[in-house]
Design a protein around this nucleic acid. Structure first.
Lengths: 201, 201
DNA sequence: CAATGATATTGACACTGTCCATATATAAAT
DNA sequence: ATTTATATATGGACAGTGTCAATATCATTG
C-alpha cells in the first residue's frame, strides 16, 4: 500500500516487509508470495528480487523482524518486573503466550523450517538472545547447585512452545472449557514452578 | 511407483498415499503436490481428484494414515509395559520422541494447520484417542485427589510436542552437546516425573 | 447386450517463483 | 557538466503448480 512517487520507490524493502506482514496476518504464510507482496506494495512482480533474492529470503527477513518485535515486547514488560529470576522467567513466558494468542500466524511462521532459514546468522543471533536470557536467569536460580541449566531451559522452552503451537493447531479447543476457572497458561506456569520447587529453587 | 495393468489402476488411493509418503520423507510437505504424487504413482495429473478432491484432502488423508501408524507403534510398545500408569504414559511419550526423531517430516506434517484439516472427524477421532488415553492414565494416578486432569495432560502433551518440534527446527542443535551425558529426552521425562511427585502422584 | 456409474485422460486456465534483457534513477568519477 | 558506474525497477518468458471441464475407458449391474 505504501508507495512513493517516481520510478524508484525509496524505501521498498520496508514497504515489502509491511505488505508481507499484512498478508501473513490475513492468510498465513501461504499468502505471502513474492508476487502478492509486490502487488500490495504497488510495484512490479520482479521488483522485490533486489531486496530479497528468494521467497525464502523474504520470509526469513520477515521472521527476523517479528523476532525483534517480540524482543521489544519482552523488554518492555520486563521493566516492571522485580529482580526475582523466577518472576523474570515467568514474564518472558507470558510475553510469548500473549504473542502466540494475538498473532498466531506470526508465531507459526517463526518455526517453519521449510520457508524460514534458521541457519543464517541474523536468525540464530535472535534465537540465542532469548534462550541465553532464560539460561542466565535459571543460572541465577540454580547458583552453585548441581543442576544442568540446559535441561531446565529446554524443558521450559519446550513446554512453552508446545502449548502455544498446539493451541494454534486447535488441539486444546474443546478441552480447555472444562477447567477450574483458572486461566490455563497460568496453570502451566504454576506447573513449571513446581519443577523449580522440586529442584529446590 | 506401484502400478497395475490396464486403464484403471485398481488400488490408486493406496498407491497415491504411498507415493505421497515417499515424497514427504524426501522433500517435506512442499514436495507433496497433486501432480508430483500422480507422476510418482504413474497416472495422469488429474487422476487423484477421484480419491482426493483437494491437495488439502490428500495431505489430510496422509496425516490420518500417519496417525494410525503412530497408534500402532504405541500399542506395540505398550504390550511390554507394566500396568503402572506413570510407566505407560512414559511409554507413549517415548513413542512420540522416537517417531519425531526418525521421521521429522512426517511428524511436522501432523501439526500443519494450513495444509491438514484438523476439524474433520477422522482427524479428531485419532487425536482424541491418544489424548484420552493419556488422560485416562493420569486419572488412574490422581484417583480421588483434587487435581485437574486436563491441566496435567496439556502440560505433558505441550512439553512433549514442543521438544520434538523445536528439535526438528534445529533450536537445540548446538546446545544438546554440552550435556551430562544423559539422554536429553530421558531427562525431560524425568523432569516431568518430578511434577508427578510434587503433585503427590 | 445395453446402460449406468466409477475411474482415468487430456487440455485449459490462472497463478506461482525465478530468470533474463531492458529501462530508469541515483551516485561517483572524470 | 558530462560521462560512467551502480543500484533499482520493469516487462516478458518459462516451467511448474492446483483446479476445473470435457472426453474416454473400464467394470458392474439390469
Amino acid at each position: 500500500m505504501v508507495k512513493a512517487k517516481g520510478f524508484h520507490h525509496g524505501d521498498l524493502k520496508r514497504a515489502l516487509l509491511g505488505a508481507a506482514l499484512e498478508l501473513l496476518d490475513e492468510q498465513g504464510d501461504a499468502g505471502v508470495g513474492i508476487r502478492a507482496v509486490a502487488r500490495k506494495a504497488g510495484v512490479s512482480h520482479a521488483a522485490p528480487v533486489n531486496h530479497f533474492k528468494d521467497r525464502r529470503a523474504l520470509l526469513t527477513g520477515l521472521a527476523i523482524k517479528l523476532f525483534d518485535d517480540i524482543q521489544t515486547n519482552i523488554s518492555k514488560r520486563l521493566e516492571s518486573v522485580s529482580n526475582d529470576p523466577a518472576m523474570r522467567i515467568e514474564s518472558v513466558v507470558k510475553s510469548f503466550f500473549e504473542y502466540g494468542a494475538e498473532h498466531p500466524n506470526r508465531y507459526a511462521l517463526l518455526w517453519r523450517n521449510d520457508v524460514v532459514d534458521h541457519e543464517c546468522d541474523e536468525m540464530r543471533i535472535r534465537e540465542d538472545a532469548v534462550y541465553d536470557f532464560i539460561c542466565n536467569e535459571i543460572n541465577n536460580l540454580t547458583a552453585g547447585r548441581n543442576i544442568d541449566t540446559d535441561t531446565v531451559a529446554i524443558g521450559l522452552w519446550s513446554m512453552m512452545h508446545g502449548y502455544i503451537d498446539l493451541k494454534i493447531v486447535g488441539m486444546f479447543e474443546e478441552r480447555e472449557d472444562s477447567v477450574t476457572g483458572e486461566d490455563r497458561p497460568e496453570a502451566l506456569i504454576k506447573m513449571f514452578r513446581t519443577i523449580f520447587d522440586q529442584y529446590g529453587l
